[in-house]
């Protein structure tokens, strides 16, 4: 299956604008997907990482097909063929 992950702002600089990931299984845990991406792009670990209690983010927002991932099970969310993931950077200021 193919999953598209889009990165914005500073995250785009660390990874690239869009990743198209070919996954062998028919679904994958978001947690495992993050591990894969960080293995390939370790600098991303400054903003999103896998700790003992799962995925931890520093001000980063993750949307799957337009909905925030916390409504879909958080890092236990199952990502399926054709899903589009948006990863937004933190914001300074206010």
């Amino acid at each position: 299956m193919v999953i598209v992950v889009r990165f914005y702002g500073v995250l785009k600089e660390l990874v690239r604008e869009k990743l198209e990931l070919n996954i062998r299984s028919s679904e994958v845990l978001f947690l495992d997907l993050v591990k894969e991406i960080i293995r390939e792009y370790p600098a991303l670990g400054n903003f999103i990482k896998v700790g003992e209690e799962g995925v931890e983010v520093r001000g980063v927002s993750v949307l799957v097909n337009g909905r925030h991932i916390m409504f879909l099970g958080g890092d236990k969310a199952l990502i399926r063929d054709g899903d589009v993931i948006d990863v937004l950077p933190p914001l300074h200021g206010g």
Binding site: E53, V57, R58, G59, M70, G74, P90, G94
Partner: peptide, 14 residues
């Protein structure tokens, strides 16, 4: 509540 700052670490849960 500025919940999207890089200085704040959280899990992706409600």
């Amino acid at each position: 509540a500025w919940t999207v700052a890089a200085e704040l670490t959280s899990k992706l849960t409600l």
